[in-house]
Design a protein around this nucleic acid. Structure first.
Lengths: 356, 356
DNA sequence: TTGAAAGCGGTACCAA
DNA sequence: TTGGTACCGCTTTCAA
């Protein structure tokens, strides 16, 4: 029976003498199982460890008794000694955008497959990161998947504690970081070439917020490819990635130029949908006959018959898998230099753009 | 310096003699802070506890030094002794449906406000619960928020371990459980009375899957209220809560009756959207002139100009708050009998139904 | 293969 | 108010 000898061994308890059950809330521990099985507690522990050394009969017996008693190993106690919580923090801010639910779902599945669980940090604002970081640390997470912006200081805070960080669909300029992204530039190239080939010449852009690296990539790449084709003077208005700003964006584009562009390139699908609705319901235009609209992401509603958005679908499932692979690798080898994995998107023809 | 006297005190170490740093990955502990501050480890612990007794100057000094050293309390170690992980498991299956992201986001915010974190269990299938339950136990979560179905056995498994369970927007018939729901019956009553008042007499229903308690409530309540108004023979077809099944549902309703109903009541918004699109793009009907369509939920896209779904919006924010309040209460008082909190939904007029 | 014992990093009780 | 000490439930040497 495991009892530590202390200095003041005044009252050697005759019986096991567990402290009087704290009302409710006591769980069966490996000690309980050990006692019933007539083996040591460490033996029980080994029986539950895949490679642990234990005779076949003992393991069988222990597992059976554990089962009977309803024993479940305490992951918290394990984490304390192994220094692995098997917890991965996911920092996400726009959970209600149409894009992230799918991401989160995939990340969760992959994490499970890799023996990790997701501790969710859904931030009301991206600016809430600072208040959150301390919490992330406290839980001793094995790693952090960041679908939010992190400042250099915030990144350093994780680095100091050797907590690997992998960015999802964003990264930091100027600082090499682990990141998994979709190839926005290639996506923009495809969209532009298809649109140009169909005869479109006047383009307008509804961009995302300035601080979105991915949004800016999409916009800059679009402009660059347009320039390649000799298209200059592309008006750009800014939105916030949401439906309303896509809608307002088209109005703004209309005001900006004397003639409405032939194409509105939107920095994501939700704005594209807003833009399509603005065209149809506010400006009484036909899409795609009078205006072509394209987006990025390939979120579920972009496939709805009502919009059928021409877009670049992100391979969210494969991105999630890549993110977790990268993460597990960095957890195992903390020293490795940062790595960026860029996956190609898939062109979805849809019906919101007039194509050749 | 805390060192336990053991039987074989053979080599009293002269220096603190920490074991040689395990490569990387060592964190600053309260012991480290204590040593630097020249106080006991327990003192450091108390300084970090809101009500802990410590003199002002000591607390100040300790906190400063902790700050300097980059000390963060280890939540895992704390959990082990307090038997509170401050973790709440959220079991969710259709994370990619349009409804749950909002729910999850709100739950996360509320949890944070109550000092808890969300451990996410996003199940690919509702049937994966069994494989998940063991994991939930291992992490010693304080409670479980279930947005999935649980069998009586599964519920018992949690009960045996005194882990409180609160259902979100679902519950079990025949077994009293803690649950927070939106008032589906009242919602159905409002929809029916508004539709009836506008002169609609022929109704059709696109239901959700049979095993959705909430879906069934919506359907049954709708039928009951229609009966109250003297409307009989309401055809019901079944869908899976997704866009495609809403769309297919209308076709099925069309096949079922000689005349298309004047109203399609859909068990959620996404099916309503699918139904609207089927009406417009497949059957070339005008909505709401030729067909009224109503839904339930009030998800984001239901407000889009393209659909403007007439629906009952669930007060997701207040439901999340109620869920966490109920949960915290049950964590504090494990013995309390189950409680159901039913919140009223809000009628959203929209434009997908012809109203008086 | 098995058991004993030493922690992991905290909290809480106790005596000083 | 402070320090000392016994754990929380597990993993992991180390001897037997």
């Amino acid at each position: 029976m495991p009892r530590r000898k202390t200095i003041r061994e005044t009252v050697p308890p005759a019986t096991p003498s567990r402290r009087p059950e704290p009302p409710g809330r006591r769980h069966v521990t490996s000690h309980d199982v050990a006692r019933r099985a007539g083996v040591s507690q460490s033996a029980v522990s080994r029986c539950f460890k895949p490679g642990g050394s234990a005779s076949a009969k003992m393991r069988e017996r222990v597992l059976r008794i554990a089962e009977e008693m309803g024993y479940t190993p305490n992951a918290i106690a394990r984490s304390l000694i192994t220094r692995r919580s098997n917890l991965i923090a996911v920092l996400i801010s726009n959970l209600t955008s149409l894009y992230y639910p799918e991401v989160l779902s995939e990340l969760s599945n992959c994490a499970t497959a890799h023996g990790e669980r997701i501790l969710l940090f859904a931030l009301p604002q991206e600016s809430d990161v600072d208040r959150t970081i301390d919490q992330v640390m406290q839980y001793q997470v094995d790693g952090v998947i960041a679908a939010v912006r992190l400042s250099r200081q915030q990144l350093d805070a994780f680095a100091r504690r050797n907590i690997p960080v992998v960015f999802f669909n964003r990264y930091l300029r100027d600082i090499p970081v682990n990141a998994v992204c979709c190839d926005q530039e290639d996506g923009a190239r495809i969209l532009v070439s298809r649109l140009y080939a169909a005869g479109h010449r006047r383009f307008g852009i509804i961009a995302g917020p300035k601080d979105s690296v991915v949004g800016e990539e999409r916009v800059h790449a679009t402009i660059d490819r347009l320039n390649d084709h000799g298209v200059r003077h592309v008006p750009v208005v800014r939105g916030g990635f949401d439906y309303e700003s896509g809608r307002a964006g088209l109005h703004e584009l209309a005001r900006l130029a004397q003639r409405l562009p032939q194409v509105a390139v939107c920095a994501n699908d939700v704005m594209a949908i807003g833009c399509i609705d603005a065209a149809r319901y506010d400006l009484k235009l036909r899409v795609p006959e009078d205006l072509s609209v394209v987006g990025f992401d390939g979120v579920g509603p972009s496939t709805w018959e009502s919009h059928r958005v021409t877009t670049i679908r992100q391979p969210v499932g494969r991105m999630a898998e890549a993110t977790l692979t990268l993460m597990m690798d960095r957890i195992a080898n903390p020293g490795m230099p940062p790595e960026k994995r860029i996956l190609a998107g898939e062109f979805i023809e849809g019906r919101s753009a007039r194509l050749a």
